[in-house]
């Protein structure tokens, strides 16, 4: 039994049950298939998180984000006082997480690609884009740069899904995706 020493001292030389052997081989191959799928997705898939990241001081990131917001600000979001920023297609866009908001609000064109710079200026935050449910961890001191291509127009909410203190559940943000303007 499993609670007593093996009945046969040379248990290593015992033959293996056939069903065990088949299952082990099958499970091993399935593991290889799953491993290969992740690699394959980097070739054929369109959703792979960027590896591009830099160390950055929170102050510098804040300065850059503020400059970006000032340059491309088109209006304010409702009565919140938060600027809505509409950068040209293909531009570098910035969003910072802080206690307790995602700042600023972005307005992007459908079908265009943008280089999104993400960082935090205080604690860790979780960038959670809804309703498409894309979730990215945001660290202070690290600037993560990913290229996003919104493929449907509409309003997208951003919530925070990394616990960041007592105001965590108030931390939200927004991205508007609009149809491309006729040239």
């Amino acid at each position: 039994m499993a609670v007593t020493p093996p009945a046969q001292r040379n248990w290593w030389k015992e033959p293996i049950e056939r069903v065990e052997l088949i299952w082990t081989v099958l499970a091993f191959l399935w593991g290889i298939a799953m491993f290969a799928t992740m690699i394959l997705w980097h070739v054929v898939g369109k959703q792979n998180l960027a590896n591009e990241a830099y160390r950055i001081s929170p102050d510098v990131f804040m300065t850059r984000t503020e400059a970006f917001a000032k340059k491309y600000k088109v209006r304010e979001e409702g009565k919140t006082g938060v600027p809505v920023v509409r950068p040209p297609a293909g531009a570098d866009v910035y969003m910072l997480g802080r206690l307790w908001e995602w700042w600023p609000v972005l307005e992007l064109e459908k079908g265009q690609s943008y280089r999104l710079h993400l960082s935090s200026v205080d604690w860790q935050h979780g960038f959670s884009l809804q309703p498409i449910n894309v979730n990215i961890q945001v660290h202070p001191g690290y600037e993560h740069i990913l290229t996003i291509t919104p493929d449907q127009s509409g309003q997208y909410g951003i919530v925070c899904n990394e616990f960041c203190g007592i105001g965590h559940h108030q931390m939200t943000g927004k991205i508007h995706v609009v149809e491309r303007k006729p040239q």
Binding site: V82, G157, I158, V159, F163, H168, H169, Q170, T172
Partner: peptide, 17 residues
């Protein structure tokens, strides 16, 4: 989100439903 007190986001300045 996990570890989150209020999924209605009622206190957020930019609510999401």
């Amino acid at each position: 989100p996990r570890r989150h007190w209020d999924m209605t986001l009622a206190d957020a300045s930019m609510p999401y439903e």
